[in-house]
């Protein structure tokens, strides 16, 4: 075996063939990490600001309840006053009992006691409907709530 130094004048170009592979790896990472919004928002929600916010760690324990004015395209049908959205449809306050029941059914015994109802409520909503929702939650035994807000 001889080790002969190649002349530096004849330098080969850097191969970019592996570049797509790296990009693909990044791509797959982000594809896995990205969680597509599973619910289409039908009500306008911009949550209020607060300083004492905490993060919700376990996503599987959180059930969302949206309250706000229906989006413009649904206003013909649902009117302009604040409504409650459960899952993928605008619902009545009375439907919350069934909603909580369905959410509980999909959880284990242990998770049921730790489950949190996240209230994503628009700033401009008045307390009337919020308090109705809270009463419904209390009736159906879901006592842990989270008032969604931004710092």
């Amino acid at each position: 075996m001889k080790f002969i130094k190649k002349k530096s004048g004849n330098r080969p170009e850097i191969s970019t063939a592996s570049l797509p592979d790296i990009i693909f790896m990044l791509l797959f990472f982000f594809m896995v990490v990205t969680v597509m919004r599973e619910q289409e928002l039908m009500v306008n929600v911009s949550v209020p600001q607060a300083t004492e916010v905490e993060k919700l760690e376990n996503k599987s324990l959180v059930d969302h309840i949206y309250i706000g004015e229906p989006m413009p395209k649904y206003q013909n049908y649902y009117g302009r006053s604040a409504r409650v959205q459960l899952n993928n449809q605008i619902s009545e306050v009375d439907d919350i009992a069934a909603f909580v029941y369905a959410c509980n059914n999909s959880k284990t015994e242990l998770d049921r006691s730790r489950a949190i109802a996240s209230l994503r409520v628009d700033k401009k909503v008045t307390m009337g409907i919020v308090s109705d929702v809270k009463t419904a939650l209390r009736k159906s035994g879901r006592l842990k709530v989270n008032y969604s807000s931004v710092r």
């Binding site: 607060a50 004492e52 916010v53 919700l56 959180v62 842990k144 807000s149």
Partner: peptide, 9 residues
């Protein structure tokens, strides 16, 4: 991540 004010009813 989801964040907000936690409360117990």
């Amino acid at each position: 991540p989801e964040q907000g004010i936690k409360a117990k009813l």
